[in-house]
């Protein structure tokens, strides 16, 4: 905070009012409502609801479909995070290395950030299409009879590829800026101390990138959990059937399609706890970083 602050009886409240009003109505209220609904069973015909304690949570967790979804979400998130981070890191290291065309590469590798997930999903679906998609042709040539939307694994594969493609740019931007902020003197000192450039990378540069990497790890997990909704929705073409879905997608399906309000809310609350934990971990790390400097 500032050493010197204004004190004024009304102004700060007036300044905060718009934000607080929006937060109250469109955040706190629905969040409270989600928590409340998770303890109630809604009458299917709309005649009120009954308090059922933790029953919704028990039903949700014990359903085999839920654990299947949870497993898929875990594997999907891990795959998206791992591949998008490692590809982006590789590209960032190379882009930091080259002397000629560095800014052109930067532009070429980052612009996909601006594409919305469902738009990526639409283009992806067409590229993987059985009749007109070149990626499908390519798989065929390699002896893989790819059937997106029919085969569980093939569908998951397409989702992952599209999700990784969409996520590489942001990771690239952060890694590159992280690399560029490694002081030149440190790089020069390392060059004097160590001959092998790959060893230099893993022992000096990479540890200095650790805070960036950690930040990106959280960002990517959040992305895989939530922001991939549009991609999944398009790849499934709105018809989930037996195909893989993530936990967030299931909240949406059960709440809007299945009309299982309590179950959907219970799942929301479970996700809230998950996100809450991730954010707390992230804030703790940021605090520690502040102490470094």
């Amino acid at each position: 905070m500032k050493r010197v602050q204004f004190s004024h009886p009304l102004m700060p409240y007036m300044l905060l009012l718009p934000q607080l009003a929006i937060v109250g109505v469109f955040f706190l209220w629905p969040a409270a409502e989600a928590i409340r609904a998770s303890f109630y069973l809604e009458d299917p015909f709309g005649f009120g609801s009954t308090f059922v304690g933790l029953d919704n949570f028990k039903d949700v967790v014990s359903a085999s479909e839920y654990s299947r979804t949870a497993w898929f979400t875990l594997i999907f998130s891990a795959a998206v995070t791992f591949f998008s981070l490692s590809i982006a890191l590789l590209l960032a290291v190379k882009a930091d290395n080259v002397i000629k065309g560095a800014s052109t590469y930067r532009t070429l590798l980052m612009w996909v950030y601006a594409i919305a997930p469902p738009v990526a999903g639409l283009v992806g679906v067409m590229l993987f299409d059985q009749h007109i998609g070149p990626l499908n042709d390519l798989a065929h040539a390699l002896g893989w009879n790819m059937q997106i939307g029919v085969n569980y694994f093939d569908t998951a594969f397409a989702m992952t590829v599209i999700a990784v493609w969409k996520q590489i740019p942001i990771n690239f931007i952060f890694f590159l800026s992280g690399l560029q902020s490694v002081p030149k003197s440190v790089q020069e000192a390392a060059a004097v101390d160590c001959r092998s450039s790959s060893r230099r990378f893993w022992t000096v540069t990479f540890p200095l990138l650790a805070p960036t990497s950690f930040f990106l790890l959280i960002i990517n997990i959040t992305y895989a959990l939530f922001d991939t909704f549009g991609i999944i929705d398009l790849v499934l073409k709105g018809e989930p059937g037996n195909n893989p879905v993530t936990l967030v997608y299931k909240v949406f399906l059960d709440g809007f399609r299945g009309n299982d309000l309590g179950g959907s809310s219970a799942q929301s609350v479970i996700l809230m706890i998950l996100v809450f934990a991730l954010t707390v971990v992230q804030f703790r790390m940021i605090e520690r970083r502040v102490h470094y400097s």
Binding site: F27, L28, P30, A31, A34, F226, G255, V275, T279
Partner: peptide, 24 residues
């Protein structure tokens, strides 16, 4: 108020989507 506002960073729209929809 600071904490109230920043609590919104904790829960993305996706996890409170159904009640948000109903309220709006």
């Amino acid at each position: 108020f600071f904490w109230i506002i920043f609590s919104t960073l904790l829960l993305p729209l996706e996890v409170r989507i159904l009640p948000s929809y109903e309220i709006v």
